[in-house]
Write a protein that binds this DNA or RNA. Structure first.
Length: 290
DNA sequence: AGCCTCCCCCGGATGC
DNA sequence: TGCATCCGGGGGAGG
């Protein structure tokens, strides 16, 4: 499950390889075509597959940017600028190879959905096992309004105040704190893993009602989320199930996690418990987290 | 207009 | 072996 640190890792690894290069052509999988013919939009959103292939053709990849859990490929053609927005969903992964046979993990090679042929001859490959990811070609963020509603980057100066303000709105104040910190309109890039970790480190029960936390506690929590995200970025992210950096690379943050996926509390050894909050499994220590 | 609830998208993993 | 069930970011539909 790629969250902010995992996406940051992908962007850092991909950036030096693809920035400045030109996309000569794009080829989408039969699965993408079939899905669109059936009235669905597997992976490619808001354009027919054949249109998408034409739109991206001959674009120069000017810059790569991570924004929340999205990767923005800033594209340029004849002084016109566009953005190819990518979300990895549950299981998206990028590869840069000379031939797809170099993708040794079969579960990714079996689910290749877009092959961008670069002018350099390299192939920029997007694989996605569960197809929850997306590729969306836009001119500006307003072309896809949800992108305008994203919270600031957590490491931005304004992010903590934004979180505090949002969390005080009625629709968030009465919800469980874990659901609120995982909401991209409150904090960017914090998913289940890092929400679970930050709450555990501060001994906050994930089901605590948000308004129940005072301003100081919320600020402390915000800072802890930033700390956990930063620690994970520094560790190359958490490689759990289908997350890979480019070309199958793995991070080491999964070894540093204290609560996510744990059966026992590392502090008091009590058995952990799992409840569903906002539709997501939430693991916590019933002894330590109140 | 904005909020809420429901539902969808999938294949791998798990369990019977 | 075969089948049903579960999981989950994010957004779209409809009330």
């Amino acid at each position: 499950m790629p969250e902010l640190p995992e996406v940051e890792g992908v962007v850092r690894d991909l950036r030096p390889i693809v920035e400045g290069k030109t996309i000569e052509s794009v080829s989408l999988s039969d699965v993408v075509y079939t899905s669109h013919e059936a009235g669905k939009q597997a992976i490619v959103k808001n354009a027919k597959p054949s249109q998408f292939e034409l739109l991206v053709r001959d674009m120069k990849i000017d810059k790569l940017e991570r924004r929340s859990k999205y990767i923005f490929f800033h594209l340029k053609k004849n002084d016109e600028r566009f953005i190819l927005v990518n979300h990895l969903g549950m299981s998206g992964a990028w590869f840069v190879v000379n031939d797809v046979v170099e993708i040794t993990e079969e579960k990714f090679r079996k689910h290749i959905h877009a092959i961008f042929t670069l002018a350099s001859g390299e192939l920029l490959v997007y694989a996605d096992i569960r197809r929850f990811g997306e590729l969306r070609f836009i001119k500006e963020l307003a072309d896809h309004p949800p992108l305008l509603k994203m919270a600031p980057e957590p490491f931005d100066e304004s992010a903590c105040d934004f979180f505090l303000t949002q969390s005080e709105k009625p629709k968030f104040a009465k919800k469980a704190i874990k659901e609120v910190i995982m909401d991209g309109q409150v904090i960017s890039g914090c998913g289940n893993i890092y929400a679970t970790e930050a709450l555990f480190k501060l001994f906050i029960h994930p089901g605590r009602v948000t308004s129940d936390l005072n301003r100081e506690k919320k600020m402390e929590l915000f800072q802890m989320i930033c700390d956990v995200l930063q620690e994970s970025i520094d560790s190359g992210g958490s490689t759990i199930s289908d997350y890979r950096s480019i070309n199958g690379g793995a991070g080491t943050m999964q070894h540093r996690l204290k609560m996510y996926g744990k059966k026992q509390c590392v502090i008091c050894e009590a058995n952990t418990e799992s409840i569903v909050i906002g539709g997501r499994t939430s693991t916590y220590c019933p002894q330590c987290q109140k």
